[in-house]
């Protein structure tokens, strides 16, 4: 169990944590699984690539999450609110359709080939991590990933709005009777979710390359993580992301042929043992 392997697992987990948290937030608040979440991530990645080549890495890292966060407004206003009365499955399918349209747009603009994205010069080399040489960028990814989610957790637990989000997530009907402004809350959460997807997208470029299939790969993994983590539970999503990152990384090293099967086996095992997932979220 080497330090490098652990750090690599954490890096992958950080990516998943950022993505899964966003997905879990909307799912917890509205009961809707945003199937287009992977496509938003992909848009963020390609946007980061383009902005990065124009302005450099650091401006892109600040701008992309902001831009993608604002697109959460579009999600909220044009998809989630009009379809509020429809069943969760129908809304999820609509987000899936929109995701497909977005993905098509990306391929149409950029072509169907993978792109490599160069990271910032400042993080290009290796760092001494407890006696082992470790890529600086991955360390940066771990710090940002875990840090941003820690900030999210603090917000959820210590702020007023965060408390409302938790309340609505656990019991939607009662919360609406308590006069919480559900609309404003939902808008904020949607923007937060897409913002996180954008952040993950802009950061993943120098870590793994970006390619036109990344939306599907990511959304499947994210959904598995969110479902394992439990309906809308942020803590569960974090736990599941870490578990997932470690299983994938260790699996790739120790059982390379069968590594691709592990996420699905993990999902099936967890759900058969504990159908509600690991964490504790909304009752439905």
């Amino acid at each position: 169990m080497s330090l490098t392997l652990i750090a690599n697992s954490l890096a992958l987990s950080s990516l998943y944590i950022m993505m899964a948290s966003g997905l879990a937030l909307i799912y917890g608040l509205r009961g809707v699984l945003n199937f287009g979440h992977g496509a938003i991530y992909m848009v963020g990645a390609y946007l980061g690539y383009t902005l990065g080549s124009i302005m450099g890495f650091w401006p892109a890292v600040f701008m992309v999450p902001l831009i993608m966060g604002l697109s959460g407004l579009l999600l909220e206003v044009f998809v989630l609110r009009p379809l509020n009365a429809r069943s969760h499955i129908e809304v999820a399918l609509v987000t899936f359709g929109i995701g497909l349209i977005l993905a098509h747009g990306i391929i149409w603009i950029y072509g169907g080939f993978p792109q490599s994205v160069s990271g910032p010069a400042g993080l290009a080399g290796s760092v001494d991590l407890l006696g082992v040489e470790y890529p600086a960028y991955r360390l940066f990814l771990i710090v940002i990933g875990l840090g941003s989610v820690a900030a999210l957790a603090c917000w959820l637990n210590f702020s007023r709005m965060g408390m409302f989000v938790r309340a609505v997530s656990q019991n939607p009907q009662v919360s609406s009777m308590m006069g919480i402004n559900a609309g404003r809350l939902s808008l904020f959460v949607s923007c937060l979710s897409t913002g996180f997807a954008g952040l993950a997208g802009v950061l993943v470029g120098p870590y793994l390359s970006i390619d036109p299939g990344m939306d599907i790969a990511m959304i499947i993994n994210c959904m598995i993580i969110v479902v394992i983590g439990g309906t809308g539970s942020l803590f569960g999503a974090i736990l599941a992301s870490i578990l997932f990152g470690f299983v994938q990384t260790f699996g790739a090293v120790h059982t390379p042929g069968l590594a691709v099967l592990l996420p699905y086996l993990l999902l099936i095992c967890v759900l058969v043992w504990r159908p509600q997932g690991l964490g504790r979220g909304r009752a439905a």
Binding site: L83, R86, V94, G97, I98, G99
Partner: peptide, 15 residues
Amino acid sequence: YSQLFTGIAVVVVIV
């Protein structure tokens, strides 16, 4: 355009 078609079809049919 299969991806684009599928995406638009889903949205239109459900909405």
